[in-house]
Structure formats: structure tokens, C-alpha cells
């Protein structure tokens, strides 16, 4: 198994190029800013409810702070930023020609792909782990429902794994990193909003669109609802994208 050296090499390259740092920086700053805003808002609401107890029946930290953080904000951030992490994975190797050496080393194509995929997923996991800081801070002065928080994190990891696989596939399609990022962003955006058409369409197709929508599935995790169909959605999307990436690399070999 030659996945490990590929993984290490990709990690080394992420560590020496600025893009990963920029993505980390933006992600954490924006998340932190939203976190503080939501927290402010929540503090105000709870103050008001303290003065007027009849209003504050349903006030819940997990529900009002963590759910929007997991639900929309992180999805937008992951959607907008992950293409910048995945775009280089294959496109850069193709552009610089290093793929010609990599694919003539005694390592199977799927090992190369898996090594690259696991590297970017590892990076993403670190990024997500850093945001644990926010719920930990929250837990210091409020009672958090850790089950819901963990489910939210599981959702983020699953969603990320599928997004990154889509990014890897897009990166296999072109020699241009920008084009790869644009494709990734486009596909993910479409998958995110595709559910909006569900209500007007109705019927079976409406259901299909709804099932295809990432938004639909991620919200369940954020709410703390674990459902196998949501898990399967992300796992399937990941496997499909990885398989397409594999076929794309194979096909490119034939074209030379």
C-alpha cells in the first residue's frame, strides 16, 4: 500500500504553499465573527426573557447558537473555501507535468487518488476540529447538549468528505486550478440549492430534488437528528465522486 507516502507528500505541499493557511485563516475568522454575533444576539434575547419570563420558554443555547453555526454558516464557508483546497490536487500535477513521474512510480492510480483525498480530508478535519473552540467556550458558561453538537460535527465531516471528493474529481478534469475550483464551486452550489425547486415541482421529482439537496441533509445533523439516509447520501456522493475521479485519471492515461 503506497497511500501513506502520497498522503505525506500532499501534506508537505499544503504546508509549504500559502493557500491552506489563507483558507484556514478566513474560515476561522469568519466563523468566529458569526459566533460572536450570534452569541450577542442570544445574550440579548436571554436578557429580555429574564425580564419577561413568559417569552423565554424555548430559549436553548444549542438550538439558537450552534445550529445556525453548523447549519448555514459553516456550509457556506465550506462550500466557498474547499474548492481552493482541492483545486490543486490533480490539476497542478498535470500542469507542471509532475503527474508523468507520479503515474510511472510503482503505485496504483487509486492509491494516488486515495492518498491525495485523505490528505485534503485530514486537513479539513483539522480545520473543523479547530472550531471546537467555540462550543467549548460556550460550554464554559452555558449548558450545551453535547449530543447535538457532536451530531453537528459528524454532519460537517460527512458533508466535507463529499465536497472534497467532488473537488478531487473536478481537479482531475482540467490542467487549470482555477477551472477546477470553478467547477467544484458550481457543482456544490447546485447541489446545495437544488432542493429549492422541490416545492414548486412536487411529486416524485420534487422528492428526488429534495433528496439530492445537501442543505436538506445537513440541517438534520445540525438539529441533532441522526438518520441513515442522510449518512448514506454523503457516503454515496463521496464514493461516486471518487469513482468518477478514478475513471477520469484512467481515461487521461489513454489520451496521453
Amino acid at each position: 500500500m503506497k497511500i501513506w507516502p502520497i498522503f505525506k507528500k500532499e501534506m508537505r505541499l499544503y504546508a509549504t504553499s500559502p493557500i491552506a493557511y489563507v483558507v484556514f485563516f478566513i474560515f476561522l475568522v469568519v466563523m468566529g465573527w458569526f459566533f460572536s454575533q450570534i452569541l450577542n444576539y442570544f445574550a440579548m434575547a436571554s436578557m429580555r426573557s429574564a425580564m419577561n419570563p413568559s417569552m423565554g420558554r424555548d430559549l436553548n443555547v444549542t438550538e439558537s447558537v450552534m445550529r445556525p453555526l453548523f447549519g448555514n454558516i459553516s456550509v457556506i464557508l465550506v462550500l466557498a473555501l474547499m474548492p481552493f483546497l482541492t483545486m490543486r490536487l490533480l490539476a497542478e500535477e498535470r500542469q507542471t507535468g509532475t503527474i508523468e513521474l507520479l503515474l510511472t512510480y510503482p503505485v496504483r492510480d487509486w492509491e494516488v487518488l486515495l492518498g491525495k483525498y485523505l490528505a485534503v480530508f485530514g486537513l479539513y478535519t483539522v480545520l473543523i476540529a479547530l472550531t471546537l473552540l467555540y462550543p467549548l467556550m460556550l460550554a464554559y458558561f452555558a449548558r450545551l447538549e453535547w449530543g447535538t453538537v457532536l451530531s453537528g460535527y459528524l454532519g460537517l465531516l460527512l458533508m466535507g468528505s463529499s465536497f472534497l471528493a467532488v473537488g478531487l474529481f473536478a481537479s482531475s478534469l482540467t490542467v487549470s486550478q482555477i477551472v477546477a475550483a470553478a467547477w467544484t464551486f458550481g457543482i456544490l452550489l447546485l447541489l446545495w440549492v437544488i432542493g429549492w425547486g422541490a416545492d414548486t415541482l412536487g411529486g416524485t421529482w420534487g422528492k428526488v430534488l429534495q433528496h439530492l439537496s445537501t442543505m436538506e441533509h445537513n440541517d438534520n445533523f445540525a438539529k441533532g437528528v441522526l438518520d441513515t439516509k442522510d449518512v448514506l447520501y454523503y457516503v454515496n456522493l463521496t464514493l461516486l465522486a471518487l469513482f468518477l475521479a478514478y475513471r477520469s485519471v484512467e481515461a487521461r492515461r489513454w489520451k496521453g
Partner: peptide
């Protein structure tokens, strides 16, 4: 001669040695 321009010579050769078994 396509090489990883952002890697250092030593680590690069170690990577190749490892991949080549």
C-alpha cells in the same frame, strides 16, 4: 524534468524512495 518545485531536495528524494518501495 517535472519536479515538485515547492519541495526540498532531500525530502523529495525520500518521498520518491518510499513510493518506489
Amino acid at each position: 524534468v517535472p519536479l515538485y518545485t515547492e519541495m526540498r531536495v532531500g525530502p523529495y528524494l525520500e518521498f520518491v524512495a518510499e513510493v518506489k518501495g
